[in-house]
Simulated scan of single mutants.
Amino acid sequence: MTPQIYLFILLSISSCFGCFFCQSILPKIEEDIEKLKADFNSSQSDVAEGGSIFTERLKSWTEATEKKIILSQIISMYLKMFDNIGPATSKLHVKNIHNALHTLNNSLTESFKKVKDLMELAKLPMNDKKIQRKAVNELFPTLQKLLLDHPTTHVKRKRSQNQKRKCKC
C-alpha cells in the first residue's frame, strides 16, 4: 500500500474521532509507516496487483457512524497482522504503530460490537424452523422500526416543501 492509502485510512479514522488524536500522532505515524513499508518491501510491483484491500471498501461507507463500523473491522485486521509479523514487532516504529492502532481500537469497541452483531446475523440458520418462527414473530416490529427511523425521501421532500411554502416572510 502507498503512504497515501495509509494516510487516507488514518484521516478517515480521524474524521470519526476528532482531530486532536490524529494531529498529534499523524506525522510520527506517517514516518513509522514509511519505515514499516521498507521492512516489508512494499514498493514491489506485486503490491499493486488486485487493487487495494481496504480503501475501496471505505468508499461506500459515507456516514460517520457507518465508517466507524467498517474502520473498527479494518483496525482489528491490522492488529491481527501485527500479531502475526513476528520479530519485526520488537522494532520501535512497529511498536508505535501497534500502540496507535490499539488506542484507536479501544475507541471503536462499540462499533466492533456492531460488526460482531452483523457476523452473528450472517451465521443464523434461516432454514431452521425455530429461527423462522422467531423471525416471523419479529417481522412487524422490525419493519416498523425501519420505516419509522428511515422515512422515504419523498415524504421528507414533501414536508420540507410545505414548510417553505408556509413561510412567506
Rank of each mutant, 00 (worst) to 15 (best):
residue 1 M to W: 02
residue 4 Q to M: 09
residue 6 Y to S: 04
residue 6 Y to P: 00
residue 9 I to V: 15
residue 9 I to Y: 01
residue 11 L to D: 11
residue 12 S to I: 00
residue 12 S to R: 07
residue 14 S to H: 04
residue 14 S to C: 12
residue 15 S to V: 00
residue 18 G to C: 07
residue 19 C to P: 01
residue 19 C to V: 06
residue 20 F to V: 08
residue 20 F to R: 14
residue 22 C to S: 13
residue 24 S to G: 15
residue 26 L to S: 10
residue 27 P to R: 06
residue 27 P to A: 05
residue 27 P to W: 09
residue 28 K to T: 10
residue 29 I to Y: 07
residue 29 I to T: 07
residue 31 E to Q: 14
residue 31 E to N: 13
residue 32 D to H: 09
residue 32 D to T: 06
residue 33 I to W: 06
residue 34 E to N: 12
residue 37 K to F: 10
residue 39 D to H: 11
residue 40 F to Y: 10
residue 41 N to W: 02
residue 42 S to D: 10
residue 44 Q to F: 05
residue 46 D to L: 12
residue 47 V to W: 07
residue 48 A to V: 08
residue 49 E to I: 13
residue 51 G to R: 06
residue 56 E to F: 11
residue 61 W to Y: 15
residue 61 W to Q: 04
residue 62 T to R: 15
residue 64 A to Y: 02
residue 64 A to Q: 11
residue 66 E to D: 15
residue 67 K to C: 10
residue 68 K to I: 00
residue 70 I to K: 02
residue 71 L to T: 02
residue 72 S to D: 11
residue 73 Q to E: 13
residue 73 Q to N: 14
residue 74 I to L: 03
residue 75 I to A: 03
residue 76 S to W: 02
residue 77 M to S: 15
residue 78 Y to K: 02
residue 83 D to I: 04
residue 86 G to D: 07
residue 89 T to V: 14
residue 89 T to H: 01
residue 92 L to P: 00
residue 94 V to W: 05
residue 96 N to A: 08
residue 98 H to V: 02
residue 98 H to L: 15
residue 100 A to I: 04
residue 101 L to E: 03
residue 103 T to C: 04
residue 104 L to W: 08
residue 107 S to D: 09
residue 107 S to I: 00
residue 108 L to C: 09
residue 109 T to D: 00
residue 110 E to N: 13
residue 111 S to N: 08
residue 114 K to M: 14
residue 114 K to R: 14
residue 115 V to M: 06
residue 116 K to R: 07
residue 119 M to N: 14
residue 120 E to R: 13
residue 120 E to P: 01
residue 120 E to N: 14
residue 121 L to C: 10
residue 122 A to Y: 12
residue 123 K to D: 02
residue 126 M to S: 05
residue 127 N to Y: 07
residue 128 D to E: 05
residue 129 K to F: 08
residue 129 K to I: 11
residue 131 I to F: 13
residue 131 I to D: 01
residue 131 I to A: 10
residue 132 Q to K: 15
residue 133 R to W: 00
residue 133 R to V: 05
residue 133 R to E: 14
residue 134 K to N: 09
residue 135 A to S: 14
residue 136 V to A: 13
residue 138 E to H: 11
residue 138 E to F: 06
residue 139 L to A: 13
residue 140 F to I: 12
residue 140 F to K: 14
residue 141 P to E: 06
residue 143 L to Q: 09
residue 144 Q to N: 15
residue 145 K to C: 03
residue 146 L to E: 08
residue 146 L to K: 05
residue 148 L to G: 00
residue 151 P to H: 04
residue 153 T to P: 01
residue 154 H to S: 04
residue 155 V to P: 01
residue 155 V to C: 07
residue 155 V to Y: 10
residue 156 K to W: 08
residue 157 R to N: 10
residue 157 R to S: 09
residue 161 Q to P: 00
residue 163 Q to V: 04
residue 163 Q to R: 03
residue 164 K to D: 08
residue 164 K to L: 14
residue 167 C to H: 03
residue 167 C to I: 12
residue 168 K to G: 03
residue 168 K to P: 04
residue 169 C to Y: 09
residue 169 C to K: 13
